[in-house]
Design a protein around this nucleic acid. Structure first.
Lengths: 152, 152
DNA sequence: CAGTATCCCAAGCGATACTG
DNA sequence: CAGTATCGCTTGGGATACTG
């Protein structure tokens, strides 16, 4: 997870990825819609391309100059659950006027949520989780996860 | 989502929250296990408490001085899906030796994953999502989500 | 153990100006 | 339109030293 954060820790990186999910592909649009300056957009896009989350693709419309499009790669696209989970949390705890946008399942029309679920299909809350150790970390197995009961 | 990032954008903040989920409560442990210096730990913990993700709780063991414990609040605990999604992505794309730790469902024992699912219960991929607008943002509804296929 | 006080460095970011 | 070049501010973060 630490390494994931290394790649994606900065605010502008996540916002650029969000825009990419929204369908933005052009340099100027990224800068404008994310609300960052062009130098920052350039640096961030270069990093994201370097990390393999986006790819540059030259294309040209007839009669136009060649342009560069930035597209999500598979690696980048699989960050969607992270973004959705983050958005959901923000909607729940930080949005005074309700969610600004919601995701719908195409066709079925129901709202899409990020949730925790175990491989047996049970929806899972934080309190129902425990840690198991893979190779590389020394820590007690069966460690309880999650907080104390809600306050306020 | 932008506001969520405002709260949680920094690398050390997320790592501290991860430690909190692992069960860490003491100042020194946060600093040491996250691998940050004490001043940084102090600053980050203060911010997280200020944002209502953690709460300080004085406690004393018999015969000891009063100590401060940092615990997740409900607001903080609900970030778990974000962390899990991030961890999963890191395991998938950045971990050379497989996942360092995995979450198990307490009792059932199966691995816990973060996933996208619509309210009708369908598992949902990025390509199956579309945007709908809530109050506050004016944008086209039905916006496609996910990587745009290369146009020829 | 649980911090605070200082100092310093590097990275994120914005503003402005310039280029193909 | 799609960037690069420079400058300078602000914040994250490490090191070291000090306090209750």
């Amino acid at each position: 997870m630490a390494s994931a954060l290394q790649v994606v820790s900065s605010r502008s990186a996540l916002l650029i990825l969000r825009e990419a999910f929204y369908g933005t592909t052009r340099f100027d649009d990224f800068a404008e819609r994310v609300g960052i300056s062009q130098p920052v957009a350039a640096a961030r896009l270069r990093e994201l391309v370097g990390d393999g989350l986006l790819e540059r693709e030259p294309y040209r419309e007839p009669g136009q100059r060649t342009r560069m499009a930035y597209r999500l790669t598979a690696k980048g696209a699989e960050l969607l659950p992270v973004l959705v989970a983050l958005m959901q949390w923000g909607d729940r705890w930080l949005a005074p006027d309700g969610p600004p946008v919601v995701l719908k399942h195409r066709g079925c029309g129901e709202t899409v949520r990020a949730e925790l679920r175990c491989d047996a299909g049970h929806a899972t809350a934080a309190a129902d989780c425990e840690l198991a150790v893979g190779p590389g970390r020394r820590q007690a197995t069966g460690q309880r996860i999650g907080p104390v009961p809600p306050e306020e």
